[in-house]
């Protein structure tokens, strides 16, 4: 068989699957968002003039930026250790990174409530140690949402960074050392620049995933920490206004796609998946 034909054959099933179960429903959703007894932009006008959706969208972006930054700061050192340590230590660390990933989102979000609540572990420890006289209001804040989401998304960030770092040629580091570079200099001038495509890719994946979060902000957030998915659920299941819900979803989808396109233009995320720069 010619390689081209083989490629199409291999791609076939997933293409059909995506077409039927993803592209088609998305098309229906887009169609619905323009429908008000005929073609109309009324739902979009609603969406942009009500104020509610725009402000919640901004909250969503703010939270996602915070979460992405947090994941990167905490995840980079872990990924670096993973990429540079021996096989035994690496296996142990990988299991530790993956273990929380296999736990359900809701269970993990509930665990944060146990930790951060008024009578939670953190507050009790602080009071018993005499650090604070009264429980601190840490649950139901932007902070608690961010912490919960970072913990949930961290494995994704770490694994993306790690897989990019694995492709860095260790020979280059040895060469740097052989030419007298200190470990910190070889990290700064060789390893870190080469790991940047991984950083860009990890940031993008983490950011876009956090845009769609629903359970964690609903359970750990206060009234001003609402994210756009929560509103989409309210509009579609409580108000049964599926056209408006579709319009909000389309805006979220378009914004996410725009981010990917613009991002790709500057950082060329193809490199993350092994493409050449």
């Amino acid at each position: 068989m010619r390689p081209r034909a083989l490629a199409w054959l291999l791609l076939g099933p997933v293409a059909v699957w995506n077409l039927v179960f993803f592209m088609l429903p998305v098309a229906v959703m887009v169609g619905r968002s323009f429908d008000a007894h005929g073609l109309s932009l009324v739902h979009y006008r609603n969406l942009f003039t009500t104020g509610l959706y725009v402000s919640v969208m901004l909250t969503t972006f703010e939270t996602s930026v915070l979460v992405t930054a947090g994941c990167l700061l905490l995840g980079y050192p872990v990924a670096y250790l993973l990429a540079t340590s021996g096989p035994r230590a690496r296996t142990v660390m990988l299991v530790l990174v993956l273990l929380p990933y296999w736990l359900d989102y809701i269970v993990r979000s509930y665990s944060w409530m146990v930790l951060l609540g008024r009578m939670g572990l953190v507050n009790r420890a602080l009071i018993d140690l005499g650090v604070v006289p009264e429980p601190l209001p840490i649950l139901y804040t932007r902070w608690s949402v961010t912490v919960g989401m970072i913990q949930i998304l961290l494995p994704l960030t770490v694994l993306t960074l790690y897989s990019a770092m694995l492709r860095i040629d260790q020979g280059l580091l040895h060469a740097a050392a052989a030419h007298g570079a200190s470990p910190s200099a070889s990290f700064r001038r060789v390893f870190f620049p080469l790991s940047l495509p991984g950083v860009y890719g990890a940031c993008l994946l983490t950011f876009v995933t956090s845009l769609g979060f629903y359970i964690t902000p609903a359970l750990l957030g206060g009234r001003k920490d609402t994210m756009i998915s929560q509103l989409i659920v309210t509009v579609s299941t409580d108000m049964l206004d599926w056209s408006l819900a579709s319009a909000v979803s389309v805006v979220l989808l378009v914004v996410s796609l725009l981010i990917v396109v613009v991002y790709n233009r500057f950082f060329s995320i193809d490199r993350l998946w092994g493409g050449s720069a």
């Binding site: 009500t50 104020g51 509610l52 402000s55 909250t59 609402t226 509103l231 309210t234 409580d238």
Partner: peptide, 10 residues
């Protein structure tokens, strides 16, 4: 009123 309430929350 749900929309008004959600807006008020924000």
């Amino acid at each position: 009123l749900t929309v008004q309430f959600e807006k008020w929350l924000q």
